[in-house]
Design a protein around this nucleic acid. Structure first.
Lengths: 158, 158
DNA sequence: GCAATAATGGGAACGGTTTTCATTACCGAT
DNA sequence: ATCGGTAATGAAAACCGTTCCCATTATTGC
């Protein structure tokens, strides 16, 4: 699980990448290689934040790849089952997905009602607080999802 | 019609009921009275937790009321615009709604992957932490939604 | 290479939500 | 009271994201 201490503000590419990890995992699980799956994984690996199936479709088509929307949903589902992607639901009836990095690197989202953007953020104290809440509830919490609604820094400044 | 005979059975802590507050607000906003709106508001007022539009539809139909699903969505949207209901999204592509009480009384949800139940909870410290996060981001956060996934207290006790 | 079969893509099917539109009902003016 | 303008309503159609189905394509073990 590569103790890659990387943060989001960093740009550029990663080394022992998520996509390699994912592809290896797929092979280990007995899946065959396939163009659509590789394309989706590759695209997701490049992202800083979540994408919807339609966005993935559009970008792959835009990049010359001819993937079917059904394949995208299939791959996303497989990735989700293996817990290799996180499903992000910011409302509006569209599911978004983003790479789930093994050792944490967990973030949440602010949905700006001004510009419509989805802003990612992370906060260690918040995570600690969430752990405390889970403990108080006596629940074994496997994951959580938080969405803030409001005006992002840019829009609230305007 | 419909002499709003609210307060059915148990639940002794109603006070200045939510439905009255809502109906008054609607009138103040210049809305006309209407059967469908009253029915939805009345039903939501009785709930302890969130309902989907379809559930509202079924319950009202079951109660002999002939409301159209379109009216339900319309009323829910109006309520949401006025911030009188909270939209709860626990995934699965269905939106759920619950009464939003003016002075706080704000809760979140744990979706148990063992028994499938939706457990509501509230936590003041968590809310404070969320406020802090909003401030750190420089965003003007109007609301937030948190869903925990995992095994609830009962299921994790095994 | 060859066959078995998983992976893929197009399109139809599906379910929740939104829109449209004719009808009904509310409310203010008379 | 009733009349008229118009908001509210409900049925059905449209819409859209997602899932299903199936013929075709591509990968893998042999």
């Amino acid at each position: 699980m590569t103790t890659a201490a990387h943060s989001h503000s960093g740009h550029a590419h990663e080394g022992p990448s998520w996509s390699e990890h994912v592809l290896a995992r797929f092979e280990r699980e007995g899946f065959r290689a396939g163009g659509a799956r590789a394309a989706v994984v590759e695209l997701l690996a490049e992202q800083d934040c979540c994408l919807s199936a339609q966005e993935i479709f559009d970008r792959l088509r835009g990049g010359g790849r001819s993937v079917g929307i059904a394949s995208i949903y299939r791959v996303l589902d497989q990735l989700f089952q293996l817990q290799l992607v996180q499903r992000v639901d910011v409302g509006g009836g569209v599911a978004r997905f983003e790479a789930a990095h093994p050792g944490g690197d967990h973030h949440h989202h602010l949905l700006c009602n001004g510009c419509g953007r989805v802003v990612a953020f992370e906060d260690a104290a918040l995570e600690a607080e969430l752990d405390r809440v889970a403990e108080r509830l006596g629940a074994r919490v496997a994951g959580h999802e938080l969405v803030l609604h409001g005006a992002c820094a840019d829009c609230s400044r305007g």
